[in-house]
Design a protein around this nucleic acid. Structure first.
Lengths: 249, 249
DNA sequence: CCGAGTTGTTGAGCCAGATCAAGGCAAAAC
DNA sequence: GTTTTGCCTTGATCTGGCTCAACAACTCGG
């Protein structure tokens, strides 16, 4: 018997298996627009869907061999790198429709850990198969280039944040970014649940958890937001925006 | 007359024009290994070579439409993003053989400025042509995915540095990284010339220029390095390495 | 060779955020 | 239902790196 018997996985996956990319509501997040039905079908044939990952479990870990990219179908992930001497840096938070594992293409090994922050489900995109298919579907090829490039741009934004911004600005930018991403997915942009701890937020933003906590409290005192544990309500988004773009003055 | 008459450019480029990718000593840095002569020839046909950029000039600027990636053939560049409110973050330093402009694929516009830090020369790789060719040459397609992925991994490393490390560790890591990259290109790994100002180093590392200057002086006092303006000599690389990986203790 | 602008060094003092410490709360475990 | 555990908040104190400031050294055009 292999460590992972395929039978239960199949069974769990079955109800989702019919939910192919072609009929998936996240299609426009994961895949390029304008695929023909045949092209769509070819994608469907490669992508295996509905792989469940429990809260706290790793989708993959640094050092593991790379085979597939993963699309978050449901749930929430963090990715993080760990330095030789054990310091963790959260490199991103990933939600529905995000494609993760892009860093692993460079070496054929994953370079970061990817941990589910709530019970989640991913679709698996075997990368070399996708590459082959991408040679027949130019827009698919271009899509993957675009997705990787977008990740580079995002990382540059984080570098700007880490290199130049003060704690308040970082937190404000973080909240606005989350808000925007929830909105894009049809959730409330003004009220949402943080799936990560203060420490994970701090790691992502280059701050200690105490600073994160204090800053959130301060924002609440100022009437910008309402905090209740992990439930965040944005009361005055403009004030936050103002903080982010005007703070040096 | 257009602002940039093509004639002098052609003339300057002429002596390099015959220096095709196929016979370029940087081949193994820019292109995948194992291309057949015909494939190599196809690449040669797309890449235009020997475009000179003077020190201080921009290869491209944020907001400009994206057409091509550039390979540094000679010289040294910085890339940087600027926030709405004018703060600059240097996102990378690029030397011989590096491919730049990858961020622009995501939006078809450049998202950062790319400035030559010394008189330089680049090869231009028209991206959509390269994409088309990549559909016929799997290893070329894969190569571009790899290059982009490598940039993502590099950015994650910088995030770790910016989020977790102290000034001394950042500077040490920076010096070691430069050293390693020079070594890879056949230059001395223990003695090199910085092409960037203290301020640019600081921007990259999330420090102020005074801190960069002080830290270099301190390393010199400790006998780890020798500094003479922009000339750096690494005396005790192990000491630097020890700083990077052991500092929390 | 001079003078202006740029770049780099160094010092003094300050402050944002880290660190250390204590306690509260909610959900899970027993 | 009590204990445990993990997570969060808040306070007090400390400090690394920033700020402000002066000056030194180098570069480059004239």
């Amino acid at each position: 018997m292999s460590m992972l018997s395929p039978i239960p996985v199949r069974e769990i996956g079955l109800k989702h298996l019919r939910q192919a990319c072609s009929s998936c509501s996240l299609r426009e997040l994961c895949l390029p627009l304008g695929l023909s039905p045949e092209e769509m079908h070819a994608v469907d044939a490669l992508v295996s869907q509905g792989k469940p990952i429990k809260r706290g479990e790793a989708l993959y870990r640094a050092g593991e061999p790379f085979r597939s990219l993963f699309a978050v179908r449901l749930g929430f992930f963090k990715t993080s790198v760990v330095s030789e001497d054990g310091r963790e840096q959260v490199t991103g938070f990933h939600m529905t429709g995000d494609l993760i594992g892009l860093d692993a293409v460079s070496t054929d090994f994953h370079t970061c850990d990817s941990i589910a922050l709530e019970d989640s489900e991913v679709c698996e995109l075997p990368f070399s198969d996708m590459e082959e298919l991408a040679r027949k579907i130019p827009s698919l090829q271009h899509h993957f280039y675009k997705v990787m490039s977008r990740e580079i741009v995002r990382d540059h934004g984080v570098m700007l944040l880490l290199g130049n911004m003060k704690a308040e600005e970082r937190i404000a930018a973080f909240l606005l970014n989350l808000s925007q991403r929830f909105a894009l997915r049809g959730y409330s942009s003004s009220s949402f649940h943080l799936r990560m701890t203060r420490e994970e937020i701090g790691s992502y933003l280059g701050l200690k958890l105490e600073t994160v906590s204090r800053t959130l409290s301060k924002f609440q005192d100022q009437g910008f937001i309402k905090v209740q544990n992990r439930l965040i309500e944005l009361i005055d988004q403009d004030a936050l925006r103002h903080l982010v773009s005007n703070c040096p003055g």
